[in-house]
Structures are given as C-alpha cells and as structure tokens.
Design a protein around this nucleic acid. Sequence first.
RNA 1: GACCCCAUAGCUCAGCUGGAUAGAGCAGCCGCCUUCUAAGCGGCAGGCCGCAGGUUCGAGUCCUGCUGGGGUCGCCA
Length: 590
Amino acid sequence: MNVFADFQSRVGAVLSAIAASGRLPAGLDLTRFVVEPTRDPAHGDLATNAAMVYAKEAKAHFPNPRQLATEIAFALSEGEGVDQAEVAGPGFINIRLKPNVFEGVLRCALTADADFGKPAQKHPGKVNVEYVSANPTGPMHVGHGRGAVFGDALANLLAFAGHPVTREYYINDAGAQVDVLARSAHLRYREALGEDIGEIPAGLYPGDYLKPVGQALAKEFGASFAQKPEAEWLAPFRARAIDAMMAMIRGDLKALKVRHSVFFSERSLTTGEYGDRVGAVIRALEGKGLVYEGRLPPPKGQLPDDWEDREQTLFRSTDFGDDVDRPLKKSDGSYTYFASDIAYHQSKFDRGYHTMIDVWGADHGGYVKRMQAAVTALSGAKAHLDVKLCQLVKLVRDGAEVKMSKRGGTFVTLREVVDETGVDAARFMMLFRKNDATLEFDLAKVIEQSKDNPVFYVQYAHARCKSVIRQALAAFPRIDLSPKALAGESLDLLDDEGEAGLMKLLAQFPRQVEAAAGAHEPHRLAFYVHDLASAFHSHWNRGKDHPHLRFVNQERRDLSGARLALVTCLGLVLASGLGILGVSAPEEMR
RNA sequence: GACCCCAUAGCUCAGCUGGAUAGAGCAGCCGCCUUCUAAGCGGCAGGCCGCAGGUUCGAGUCCUGCUGGGGUCGCCA
C-alpha cells in the first residue's frame, strides 16, 4: 500500500474530471505533478503542487492557481481517509489524513511482511545491469569495489521494485592486456620451474598474485613450454591465466557479497558459436549508413608523441550527439574495444533488454556518449542505455590519503580493505553517497563502532527492534508476535506523536523504493533507513523519561500489542532496506 | 583546446527529477546511564547553497558564461 501513489491517482482523477467538464484541456500529462510528504507537519501529511503545475493550461477557467487548487482540494476532501484538504501559499494543496489511514498502512505492511514496499504490479520490462567488468589481469581495488557494490545494490533495488533483472559481468578477455597477462604468467611459470627471472620487465604485470598461476602452469605442463616460442604457449597460458584471475575476482566479489548471474566473455563475440559478431554489427551499422572510412582530427592541445594522420573505419557517433566520430578498427585492422562493446550491447538488445544500465568508473566518462550513441543506433532507438559513473574512491588512512601505485608497493586491494572493515561497513559507506560524487573512504571511520558510524547506527536500530520483541516475549509469554497476528492488534491505540511520526515514515517506504529505483539511485535507500533508524532511536529514548511510552507495558496487553506491531514493522522495513543494500540486519549487537 | 563529474555549516555529506522558513552526522558548548542495549537521546551555536546573468508564479535544483578541484581525450581496456 502506497498512500502517495494512491493520492497521485486520486488527484489525477480529479483533474481528469475537470478536463471532462471542459475546463482543462484533454490529454493532460498526469506525471508532471507530485504528491509528496510535507516538510512541515503543520502542513498536514501530504502535499501536491498539481494546481500550480497546470496553472497555464487552466488559465482560461481558473485565472490563478489557488482557484484550481480550491476545486481540487474540495474534491479530495470528500475522499475516504481525508481529514482535511486545504489550499496554502501560491496554490499548494495540503492534505491531512485520518489516523486510520496510517493504521491501515501498518496493517498492510505487517500482512505483506517482507513484500512491503514492493509495487502492486510487476514491471514487464526486463533490465540488464552490467557492473564491475574489471579486467581479468589482477585483483580488484577499492574503486572497482565501489562500482561492484553500487551495481549489486542497484540490481537488488530494481528487483525489489518489481523488474526482472539480469546481473551481468563483461569479461574483457580479448584485448592486448590479456596477452600481457599471458606473458607475465609465462615468466612466473619459468620462475616456478626454478629459473632466476630477476626483475619483472616493464610492461608486464609484476604482482605476486601471478606466482601461484605460474606454479599451476608448471605443474600442468612441466618444462615443455619453457623455451618454446610465444606462439605455442600464448593461447593456453592466456586461457588459464584468465581463468585464474577470474577465480580470484569472483572470490573478491564474494567477499563483498556482490552477485552476478551472467559472466559474458568479450572473446566469445568473435570466437563463439555465432561467429564474428563484431564484424556483423559493424556491417549492420554500415547498412544504416553509419560507418565510413575517414580521418579524425588530432586532439587539440597536447598532441600524442606518436600521432600519425591516417584513414580508419569510423562510426558516426556525432549523429547521436557525440563530439567526434569514433574508430571501430585499429591500424592493424583488429577491432577496437569500442567495436567489441557495440557487439556486446547488440547482444543485450538481441536478448530482449530495452533498458540497459552500465556501471562504470569515472575514468570511462569519455565513453558514455559514444556508447549511448551506439545503443541508439543499433536498436533503432528502441533501447535505452543509462550509464552510472561511480566517481573515484579516496582511500584515507590515519588522516592521509593512500596513493595507489602498483610499482610503489602501496597498492591496496579491495580484499585487504574488506578484511579490515567488514563487508557491512564497506558496503554501507560506499552506498551512503551519490554515485557521481567522489567518495572519501576513511578506514578509521568505517571501522569505528560508534554513533559516528552510520552502519552501526542503522544496524543497532534493527537490533533494538529485536531486543524489544525479546522483552515482550518475556513479559507476555503467550503473545503471538508473528506479523500477521500483530496486524490484528488495536492499532488505534497508537496515538502518541512519536508513534504517529514513525508510522508516517514507514508509509514512505514504498515511495522511497519507487523513487530510488526510478532514478537508479540506491543511495536514497541508505539515507532513508538512516532517517528511520534516527526516528526510532529518538522515540525509544523518550521511554526513559516517560515510562508510559515504552513499547512493552506489563499492565497494558492491548497497548503493548499495538506498539509491538509498530516495532515489528520497523524491524521489517529496516531489514528490507538493509537487504537491498546488501547489509546484514543483526538480531543483536553484542 | 574539447568533453564528463563535483562545488551547500569549520569537516564529511543529504536535499525526494522546480516548491513553502535549506537539513543530518562529526568537531565545539550544555545536559541525560538504578531505565525495553548509552553502539543511544535532548538542547545551543554554526549558511552571500563557488561567482555573475537568465528562464519561472517560485531556483540549492533547469539554461548560459566565468572561477576552482577531479577525471578523460585515435591504434588501453
């Protein structure tokens, strides 16, 4: 039950009725106005700006917005559950609801249990969320972790909001970097065979994490490839090294509780059962007149040292708002990463996804326009790609930023950070921020188990709910505390201001889910559960000075029942919210 | 030179797709543990929302131009 959606349609119905009477134009876009919680409780429970939004269209019959607002307010005030609807300011309509509306929400929430907050009907459109897609050449770092957690939480959120969601990882196993990986592995292989390899040459991956790969290769192949030319061992070494790297990355992801349902290999685009799909997509775009042989102007300002002007195969991304056309083939005729990525997104489209979300690091910002251009082109504008860029993570230890350098040995892996902070804290902190703002990840603060730390603050609120319930069981050994039974309690006894505030906040959960899912912004849920936790802690503490406000009251079985319904619902929504974020909701904090 | 992101309290950040008097948490100051867990709560103080224009009944939010910080710019993915 979503009271905001309910009133959105009620207001819409009133507007339609006025339109039917000829005093508003037909075919109004009813998504333009909003019904939202009031900021000031004195304004009632809900407010809508509908009269102001349609002021222009209404001008002929309603010279000013307040007149339209008056008519809408009158119609709304007749509706069920409405205590009063009045016009305020320039044309707001403030609605005060009868208390039984929130009792109804609470009852619904308890009945729905873990399904509370999900929309009434599922969305038909399936969504593809691609995230992480770190190169299989080494362990993940903290920046990857942010994108991973963001994508995972976003996928959880969309699934909760009723979308069929596919969680996808694109394995970049086709470019030059995996050949470098294979050569690096070959070096470690020779090392494992007892050879002194000395310093790792520049251009190869120096990390120790390749030593076990070399040992495994030595065990499998013996010395047979030690002195052989690269052509003989490159392919098998590459395949095994990639597998080993992906196993490591999957381990890193598991440590962060990040899940994927599909791992899509870039290499399969050219070598798989469907043949050369990159070539096919280029030909398809060619057929649409979007591919040509041409020359690109050199970048202005700093010219690359090895710049040479030459003709290459280009995609007309400028037709779709990009700054310049983008190359599809390298000088040696092989495909660019962009070309592969077009084929990959073609595959998503072919698999029926018209909504695609890619989660990338900030360093890929320059690729957004061209990729969106490509998706528009290949789908004939039928598919939409939203790219969520996660800005950089600034890792702070002891008040100073940790500069990442693979060579300098100050490279901090994601796994090290997660081992230090715990999954819950790491995930929550990464989600307690907009994706497009840089994230300061202060290890000391993330680990701190105190009120400074929002993770524990929210988890404590959940644990406190459970604690109250344990107390209740001690006080009323025979009470049925299942949500469904609690829904039958006398909820009209919840007449305290703090209790009413909590119920109103709980009623916002479905709206928060809908808004966060619609905007692809999981952080909104993190802030919502934090707000909810804050309101709960606050109310709980009022029970110190005012014992009659405590949830459990031995003398009042009926009142306790109603309050336990409230606290159970709080626990339920906190658990749902934390669940979407992928953070555990503990029974107790000890 | 171009493109993308950011700029809100001393610090770290929200601000619900344009609404009413801009909000939290730290840090500072003053209070609250004989209590359903003090990992908590209440209060005080703290603001030219980077600057300048524009659109609008109404702008922290949208547009333009600046300033400052970060990211990126053919044959790396």
